[in-house]
């Protein structure tokens, strides 16, 4: 689990999923990210690792923070960054995906950062292009850089990941963040708890590598980390949970529930938050909330991923 030469350890062409990443690979990325995080706090933030390289942000689904985080990461490493926001028309989405991939491929980018509303779409696209592809979120499948930035945030705050108890709470059913985090945390030796009402638990949730709770207070007992998930508005009015009020009552993170976790438990949220729905406003701004650090580490982790992937790029 110790870090050695990172480039020798993370030697993949794409970053599409956290499933199958080794502890060595994750550690390697976090080590590079640690340095990038320090660099980002300097006045001179820019390096030239990606000089001459082209990074294209291809977002089929709206995103503010992930896209700007990747944009900044690319620019700080000296890459030329282009943002493409592909409006999702309701027709022929698949055609758009493949066609756009082929078109972009012809422009010879070095790295494509892709977000898509359909699970597996980024993998499909990666099969069609010659460059490196980073999954910036595909449907309810995976969001690898989010899990890595969460791991980095935890490691910097707690000094380790192994042995910690991490509760992931909320809409696990639709959450790619949860899936990626469950993979990374398990690989890194953390104990994972999954907390959600049964209507927001995926099938066979107990097979994912975490203990499942439908009672949040019980699930938070003695946790080191409380990781909240976003609940989308359209799922709050009867189809998955009866109302915002009821959801907040049973699954919103308030002081009473938080008191069940360890006194030094960290509070995390991938954002954007629904204050008063899944998290009390005062908790979001709590001294133990590392939600802003997560955003900061997001840039660092994305720089690390870009740097690691760039070492696999062709130089001829």
């Amino acid at each position: 689990m110790t870090s050695s030469t990172p480039s020798a350890i993370f030697a993949r062409r794409h970053l599409l999923t956290c499933e199958g990443l080794t502890a060595g690979e994750i550690t390697a990325l976090l080590d590079i990210a640690d340095k990038a995080a320090d660099q980002n706090r300097q006045v001179r933030k820019k390096r030239d690792v990606l000089q001459g390289r082209t990074l294209i942000n291809l977002f089929f689904e709206a995103s503010t923070r992930t896209q700007s985080s990747f944009e900044l990461a690319g620019k700080r490493l000296g890459a030329d960054v282009m943002n493409m926001n592909v409006a999702t028309s309701s027709v022929a989405k698949g055609e758009t995906l493949i066609d756009t991939a082929m078109t972009l491929n012809a422009m010879r980018p070095d790295i494509l950062v892709v977000r898509h509303h359909a699970a597996g779409a980024v993998e499909l696209l990666a099969q069609k292009v010659d460059c490196s592809v980073i999954n910036a979120g595909d449907g309810a499948h995976q969001h690898p850089t989010q899990a890595l930035l969460d791991a980095l945030t935890i490691r910097r705050a707690k000094g380790r990941i192994a042995g910690l108890t991490v509760a992931i709470c909320g809409d696990v059913l639709h959450s790619r963040v949860a899936r990626s985090n469950i993979d990374v945390l398990n690989t890194m030796g953390a104990r994972v708890r999954i907390i959600a009402p049964s209507t927001l638990l995926p099938a066979a949730a107990d097979r994912l590598g975490g203990e499942v709770f439908t009672d949040m207070a019980k699930g938070l007992e003695d946790c080191d980390i409380v990781m909240m998930l976003r609940l989308q508005r359209e799922r709050m009015s009867g189809s998955f949970v009866p109302s915002t009020r009821e959801y907040y009552h049973f699954f919103g993170l308030d002081h009473e529930k938080l008191a069940r976790a360890k006194p030094d438990a960290l509070i995390m949220h991938p954002g954007p938050m629904n204050r008063g729905v899944e998290i009390a406003s005062t908790i979001a701004d709590h001294a133990r909330s590392v939600i802003r650090e997560q955003v900061e580490m997001g840039v660092a982790v994305r720089m690390a991923v870009l740097e690691a992937l760039s070492r696999q790029l062709r130089n001829d």
Binding site: A119, G139, A140, R176, R179, P202, A203, A204, A205, L208
Partner: peptide
């Protein structure tokens, strides 16, 4: 489990 892991 397979559908859950694939996010489908």
């Amino acid at each position: 489990e397979v559908s859950t892991r694939l996010g489908l």
